[in-house]
Simulated scan of single mutants.
Amino acid sequence: MKIKTKEVRIAKGVSQTELAKRTGLSRPYLSQLESGVRNLSARHQAKIAEPSASMLGN
């Protein structure tokens, strides 16, 4: 499952560190998701979806 978190994050000027704080996920985990090393678990989908939606809305 490819996620576009990186594209949205960069377009909104949000760092991985800031997104990690907003989601409660670690920065290394987010980095691995963005690079395709790890797949997004169902458990973490909601943690990323809510902050990503607010980034899109701003």
Rank of each mutant, 00 (worst) to 15 (best):
residue 54 S to T: 14
residue 20 A to G: 15
residue 18 E to A: 12
residue 42 A to P: 01
residue 12 K to A: 07
residue 45 Q to E: 00
residue 44 H to I: 01
residue 16 Q to V: 08
residue 12 K to N: 11
residue 32 Q to E: 14
residue 14 V to R: 01
residue 19 L to E: 02
residue 1 M to F: 08
residue 9 R to W: 07
residue 1 M to C: 00
residue 35 S to G: 15
residue 33 L to D: 03
residue 57 G to F: 12
residue 24 G to N: 06
residue 37 V to K: 12
residue 45 Q to V: 10
residue 46 A to N: 14
residue 1 M to S: 04
residue 6 K to P: 09
residue 18 E to H: 03
residue 22 R to S: 14
residue 19 L to P: 02
residue 21 K to F: 05
residue 13 G to I: 05
residue 40 L to Q: 08
residue 47 K to Y: 08
residue 53 A to K: 10
residue 50 E to N: 09
residue 58 N to K: 13
residue 15 S to Q: 04
residue 20 A to D: 15
residue 49 A to C: 06
residue 8 V to Q: 02
residue 42 A to R: 10
residue 39 N to P: 00
residue 25 L to D: 10
residue 33 L to W: 09
residue 6 K to G: 15
residue 52 S to I: 15
residue 48 I to M: 07
residue 35 S to I: 09
residue 39 N to I: 04
residue 20 A to S: 15
residue 37 V to D: 06
residue 43 R to T: 11
residue 3 I to T: 01
residue 38 R to A: 04
residue 56 L to C: 01
residue 9 R to Y: 05
residue 3 I to G: 03
residue 33 L to V: 13
residue 53 A to S: 11
residue 41 S to G: 01
residue 32 Q to I: 03
residue 7 E to C: 03
residue 36 G to L: 04
residue 17 T to L: 13
residue 32 Q to S: 11
residue 37 V to H: 12
residue 30 L to F: 06
residue 29 Y to W: 12
residue 34 E to V: 13
residue 25 L to I: 09
residue 51 P to H: 00
residue 32 Q to Y: 07
residue 25 L to W: 14
residue 18 E to D: 11
residue 58 N to R: 14
residue 58 N to W: 15
residue 46 A to Q: 08
residue 53 A to W: 10
residue 10 I to D: 02
